[in-house]
Design a protein around this nucleic acid. Structure first.
Lengths: 113, 113
DNA sequence: ACGGCATGCAAGCACTGGGTTGCAGGTCAG
DNA sequence: CTGACCTGCAACCCAGTGCTTGCATGCCGT
């Protein structure tokens, strides 16, 4: 059991990484096929360097992984990391709901007596 | 082909909202009990106004809801919105995995023949 | 009515982060 | 070797935003 890290710092970082439009565009591409920074730069409306920074960040938080192929570096989106995050968020969300419903129960009890 | 909303703009906003440490601290409190901005300001190391802005944002993206109680406004964390997001992320994550594994299958097929 | 506490509205400030351009260094094909 | 292409590093710009302080306003209890 997760002791109760409640809000592991990595969740924040991960969410922050996913809180950018451009990065989602990149991930949308990397989700269907691996691609290099230059390759992505051709399809997206931002410079290669900007994309390189995004890829660096995505790799750091585990949403993508790099792989050298000679002179180029290809990236792929990692679904595992995303589903992992999804699990954590769902757990937390359910936690909020149960606690609140419990409060509601208490309120009902009080008003019933 | 974009039939799948894939990346609904709200996902980005939601993730961006969750990409801030302070907002998680706020949500951590609101997940267990409703509280007002002033109340939160006493427990957290930031000013009331800063918290008020965060609450405003959280309410906008649906992660919290406001409720007037006379002179004060109390907020609660909404788990529903979070689990909803979790579902979407999991779906997307699985999508990436299946596509990539399919590519791997193709690669195996090719190398086998 | 009045003092205290809560919210709301600004104005302002410093920092972060997404973006760009420019240049140097590798690597592959001809 | 040479040219074309890709990557990596660095400096820089600029808008967004997280926080603050200050003041005006509004509700509650005594």
């Amino acid at each position: 059991m997760t002791a109760s890290p409640a809000v592991d710092g990595s969740i924040v970082e991960l969410c922050a990484a996913l809180g950018d439009e451009t990065r989602w565009q990149i991930l949308a591409v990397l989700g269907s096929r691996a691609a290099s920074a230059s390759e992505l730069a051709r399809q997206l409306p931002v410079s290669r360097q900007a994309i390189a920074k995004h890829l660096e960040l995505l790799a750091q938080v585990g949403l993508a992984d790099r792989e050298r192929a000679g002179r180029e570096v290809r990236y792929r989106a990692l679904g595992a990391r995303l589903t992992e995050l999804a699990d954590q968020l769902e757990t937390i969300g359910r936690g909020w709901e149960t606690r609140l419903s419990r409060l509601k129960d208490v309120a009902e009890q009080l008003s019933r007596e």
